[in-house]
């Protein structure tokens, strides 16, 4: 099977990643790595991960999202996760798993708004 890659899009000084596939482990780790590179190269102030198409998030993927959030923060940027599905949120709560190293917003629009407020 061909290597998949998740595209990272730059809008002004934000990096936007729309995850359109079930995150498997290799893919998630690759994403973390290339995202770090892009934050450094582009001097991005914010990173937005859109997970509205992701139907299952387990504790391992949660850890990866948290790790991405932490590393983005270490580089001086802010990380938002947007579009978590209701069933995914309920499941994470029930499992007692925390998404505490990232910010969350309901939609992409709201995340962009919050990031803009931060910068003005």
């Amino acid at each position: 099977m061909k290597d998949q890659q998740i595209p990272i899009i730059q809008i002004r000084n934000c990096l936007l990643v729309s995850i359109q596939t079930e995150l498997h482990d290799r893919l998630a780790l690759d994403l973390q790595e290339s995202l770090m590179d892009r934050v450094r190269v582009t001097d991005a102030k914010g990173v937005i991960l859109d997970v509205s198409a992701v139907e299952i998030i387990d504790s391992y993927i949660t850890r990866i999202l948290n790790d991405i959030g932490k590393s983005v923060r270490f580089m001086g940027a802010v990380c938002y996760i947007v579009g978590i599905r209701p069933a995914v949120a309920m499941t994470l709560i029930e499992m007692g798993v925390e998404l505490d190293s990232v910010n969350t917003a309901l939609t992409l629009d709201l995340a962009l708004e919050k990031l803009e407020l931060l910068q003005s």
């Binding site: 391992y60 499992m95 007692g96």
Partner: peptide
């Protein structure tokens, strides 16, 4: 590698 919380979560 993981959170170490898999079994508890299940």
């Amino acid at each position: 590698r993981g959170m170490g919380k898999g079994l508890v979560a299940v």
